[in-house]
Design a binder for these strands. Structure first.
Length: 650
RNA sequence: GCUGACGUAGCUCAACUGGUAGAGCAGCUGAUUUGUAAUCAGCAGGUUAAGGGUUCGAGUCCCUUCGUCAGCUCCA
């Protein structure tokens, strides 16, 4: 091999020789004209590079085209630069922050005199089209620190970034036409490659995510390789909007949040309450079969309790302020509404002597707690101030942890996996910066959880620093019907509270020992879980959860008595039904039933009234009706409810 | 909490630069008696989120408060 050439290896294992100094673009051209045109970037030894960078001898090189998801990130990153290029032309004084690719798109942060409005976004998008048309090449340069400082002397945010770069780190600068940016890259060859994009919205964002720093204006956009992909994404946003639990909650009359009462406080209307009731029943039945005991505890407490638990100093900002003393109590006795149940359950545990034989003691309570969440974080039922937790605390011996976690993971599998058909993922969250307790105790707790996960043979990820302040935890994450990720169930180990409350049990050695505690919730909160279910099922709940399971439709007024009889029979069989006796056409009633997502409509006309049958129309099944004897219908419904089937049996 | 946008009938939305608040759906009444996604007609429904200001006149302009939304931050 002469020094005047470099040899690179292609993904198929073949080698190719190129003149020294040849770039990724040269390689693509050497392979074929089609590839040269399609090429966006190269992956060399696992790193994504610009096409314009010279390749070195011995590299393994993959040409990236629009078939490659890594190329999509590059496209979006370049889109962010095009956005900044446009903004700088329209607002020459805008200071530039960061502009990375994100899931489904990109953003760029600017420091400007005046926030961007919708008209600004339109103008910026127009200008972006011009930048794309101009087809400016993205030019990469490596510069010295001094040179970088000089180039960005008018951009304080960039100067701050430069100051943070480690010595010896390569500082690269990218230019596209009139715009220069400090950037690691890589980028597509030219702005003309970015054709299918759309700006979505602008919002404030703190510089470097720090609320003590100034607020920048962030513009979000999305970018795709094809118009079809872009349209599909916009349709996906539209689909998500239609599934929005706040909209469906209103349409289906499930819940409301009322200004007179306050934000983040949920009114469960009868239909939403039925949903909650069924979920409660299911989880309570499930845990009672597994050795849990139900308790009910007060909603307010002397704040002394939360002082002792250690919550108050750390958690005060999320608790509602203290209330005055009760009648006849000293002025300085303050009460707090509870933000969590653990201290309450601890008091139940501590109310008697416990033997090692009694453990684990599993105390469960579906309880309302109140947290003073910051106003800007509230969101429908998904983020509220009045929470209904399906809470439980398990007090056990250290040697029982693995079995208990094992059992808990089994409950998770039953509820999320088997009943709701969700694919879920487990995250082991370890010690955060803000925490109670020493590192040795934390290490012990983390190891115990990890051992249990390993023993169960499930896959899990480590979420470094994601733990609660009192112990490590296992978070359960799952995806909904349109691919969004949710967090519900959580299993937290706690060595801290038993210590603080001096909890004990008598061991077989007749000596006092300290139990370990597990906090766990399967749904998380019923608010969030119901919000999730509404969006996941788009309001079309499985039969066992549906507030209204069957709607009986008489065709004409003369069949009203027969329809009422069907309704009475269904209700007697434990089926939630109603009769639509309005003087409307059948078409109208069917439409109404469908829009309210009732799982079954049972039509009773002349023929059915005579024969003692019902003509059943399953939700979404169109005209595919099934005529069957009432008793058979009842049995099938009961079976569908009993098995908590996700799909209709009738 | 921060930044911005927004708040009109139960719901979805109109009302040009300040000039008499309007429609569809839902509701009620009546007619119709319907066979698988909207029968017809009539009626009723609003201190335009609340409070203050500018103006001859405010849904529209200004201020304050409350709330909603998009993000940031935080989190079940």
């Amino acid at each position: 091999m002469s020094p005047s050439e470099v040899r690179v290896t292609l993904p198929d294992g073949s080698a190719r020789a190129l003149p020294a100094g040849a770039t990724g673009a040269d390689l693509a051209r050497a392979i074929g004209a089609g590839l040269a045109k399609a090429a966006l970037a190269v992956r060399v030894d696992g790193q994504v590079w610009d096409l314009s960078r010279p390749l070195a001898d011995g590299m393994r090189v993959t040409i990236l085209t629009d078939k490659d998801s890594q190329a999509l990130d590059v496209l979006r990153h370049s889109s962010a630069h095009v956005l900044a290029t446009a903004v700088r032309q329209l607002f020459p004084h805008a200071k530039i922050g960061f502009g990375p690719p994100i899931e489904d798109g990109f953003y760029y942060d600017f420091e400007v005199e005046r926030p961007f409005g919708p008209e600004d976004l339109e103008a910026i998008e127009k200008k972006m089209v011009e930048v794309v048309k101009a087809d400016y090449p993205f030019v990469r340069e490596e510069v010295s620190r001094a040179e970088a400082k000089q180039r960005f002397k008018d951009d304080p945010l960039k100067l701050e970034r430069i100051a943070d770069l480690a010595d010896g780190e390569v500082i690269s600068v990218y230019t596209d036409g009139p715009f220069v940016d400090l950037c690691r890259g890589p980028h597509v060859p030219s702005t003309g490659r970015i054709t299918h994009f759309k700006l979505l919205h602008a919002a404030g964002a703190y510089w470097r995510g720090d609320e003590r720093r100034q607020m920048l204006q962030r513009i979000y956009g999305t970018a795709w390789f094809t118009k079809d992909d872009l349209d599909a994404y916009l349709r996906r946003l539209e689909e998500a909007r239609k599934r929005d639990h706040r909209i469906l909650g209103k349409q289906l009359d499930l819940f409301s949040i009322q200004e007179d009462v306050g934000p983040g406080l949920v009114f469960w209307h009868p239909k939403g309450a039925m949903l909650q009731f069924q979920l409660r029943r299911f989880i309570e039945d499930t845990i009672l079969e597994r050795g849990y005991q139900l308790v009910y505890t007060p909603h307010v407490t002397r704040e002394q309790l939360f002082l002792r638990s250690g919550h108050l100093p750390l958690y005060a900002e999320n608790q509602f302020p203290a209330m005055g003393a009760g009648e006849g109590e000293a002025e300085n006795v303050r009460y707090r509404v509870k933000p969590m149940n653990c201290p309450m359950h601890i008091l139940v545990y501590a109310s008697q002597q416990r033997s090692y034989r009694d453990l684990p003691v599993r105390l469960a309570e579906i309880a309302n707690v109140y947290r003073n969440e910051r106003s800007g974080t509230l969101h429908g039922m998904l983020r509220v101030r009045g929470l209904t937790m399906d809470d439980a605390h398990v007090f056990l011996r250290p040697d029982q942890i693995e079995d208990e976690i094992f059992q808990l993971l089994d409950i998770v599998e039953l509820v999320l996996g088997r009943t709701f058909g969700l694919a879920y993922r487990l995250d082991l969250a370890t010690r955060p910066a803000k925490k109670l307790g020493d590192d040795a105790t934390w290490g012990q707790a983390e190891r115990a959880l990890e051992e249990a996960l390993k023993r169960r043979g499930v896959t899990y990820r480590i979420d470094q620093g994601g733990g609660a302040f009192y112990g490590p935890k296992i978070d359960v994450k799952f995806n909904d019907a349109i691919g969004r990720e949710w967090q519900g169930a959580t299993i937290q180990l706690d060595y801290e509270l038993p210590e603080r409350f001096q909890l004990e049990y008598t061991g077989d050695d007749n000596r006092a020992h300290r139990p370990v505690m597990i906090h766990r919730a399967i749904y998380g909160t019923l608010e969030r879980f119901c919000g999730f279910l509404i969006e996941h099922f788009a309001g079309a709940f499985p039969l066992w959860l549906s507030p209204e399971q069957v709607r009986v439709l008489p065709i004409a007024d003369v069949q009203a008595p027969a329809a009422r009889a069907v309704h009475e029979r269904l209700r007697g069989a434990g089926i939630r039904s109603s009769v639509d006796e309005r003087s409307e056409t059948l078409n109208y009633k069917i439409r109404d039933g469908e829009t309210h997502k009732v799982p079954y409509m049972a039509v009773v006309g002349e023929r059915e009234a005579q024969a003692g049958t019902v003509a059943v129309r399953a939700r979404g099944a169109g005209k595919k009706q099934v005529v069957l004897p009432l008793e058979e219908f009842v049995q099938q419904l009961q079976e569908e409810v009993r098995t908590r089937s996700l799909s209709p049996l009738v």
